[in-house]
């Protein structure tokens, strides 16, 4: 089942990427043949604002059980070079099936987390050719600080100790604050006037979650280290990701 899903996902990426690459080269050819009057402007400091949405997250959510993710972003075009950016999104993750430690889990075990996430940073564009256009293609690198106030629910997680003949189940829920850094390389290209399509490779690093200490009814304390965060995924290492965006440039 998982393999089939992955194949379907890969097929979608293939189609999307092909469309993107085709549109990029088609537009490039057109741009050389016809002088675009609609796109001409004088050189200035502030050119406009782009609003875009990630289309990869919702498509992945359709095919991946227990995962929901969507996000949108806004960035400002300063001198066609610096793009201060803000992104926000919502993600829900069911990591119940991730459990793979040697012991079988207790029936009814589940681990889910959900919440919004926010990213603030800036992109630097390398394709400012100084031709005085309103909207230009972007080839950029960027860095963002991200955080997520999220909610976790852990049901019937097992504590087992063979030396003391103990089998116990814990259920705990609460809120947690996760944070990380994100570095990106991306392309964005006008595909039809001010409509733009983009692809971005992103590396999420330094993922941390604040340890939440919960007092249990039996008087003991229970520390929860969130291992997933909305917008990041699993904290067990740095994460690569690809984002496909579609958006509009308001000039």
């Amino acid at each position: 089942m998982k393999t089939t899903t992955m194949r379907i996902l890969r097929f979608f990426w293939l189609v999307l990427s092909s469309l993107f690459i085709t549109s990029v080269f088609a537009q490039k050819k057109e741009a050389q043949e016809v002088k675009d009057e609609w796109n001409l402007t004088t050189s200035k400091t502030f050119y406009g604002v782009s609003v875009y949405a990630d289309i990869a997250g919702p498509i992945t959510s359709m095919f991946k059980d227990g995962k929901t993710d969507f996000s949108f972003g806004v960035d400002a075009d300063i001198c066609h070079t610096i793009y201060p950016t803000f992104e926000a999104g919502y993600s829900k993750y069911d990591a119940t099936e991730s459990y793979n430690y040697g012991l079988p889990q207790i029936p009814g075990y589940s681990y889910t987390c959900n919440g919004s996430y926010y990213k603030i940073g800036a992109n630097f564009n390398f394709l400012n050719d100084g031709r005085g256009n309103k909207v230009i293609p972007l080839l950029y690198i960027g860095a963002k600080f991200a955080f997520s106030p999220s909610h976790f629910d852990i049901e019937n997680v097992r504590l087992s100790n063979e030396f003391w003949n103990i089998e116990k189940a814990y259920s705990v829920s609460g809120k947690s604050l996760c944070r990380w850094a994100e570095f990106s390389v991306g392309l964005r290209y006008p595909i039809a006037k001010f409509f733009c399509m983009g692809v971005e490779g992103k590396l999420r690093e330094f993922g941390r979650a604040k340890v939440k200490t919960v007092d249990m009814p039996d008087g003991s304390s229970f520390d929860v280290k969130q291992s997933y965060s909305p917008g990041y995924g699993n904290f067990n290492g740095s994460k690569w990701g690809v984002k496909y965006t579609i958006g509009y440039f308001f000039h």
Binding site: Y99, Y170, F222, V224, K225, S227, N236
Partner: peptide
Amino acid sequence: NEFVNAECG
């Protein structure tokens, strides 16, 4: 007690 992560318990 410590919930380590989803993989470990």
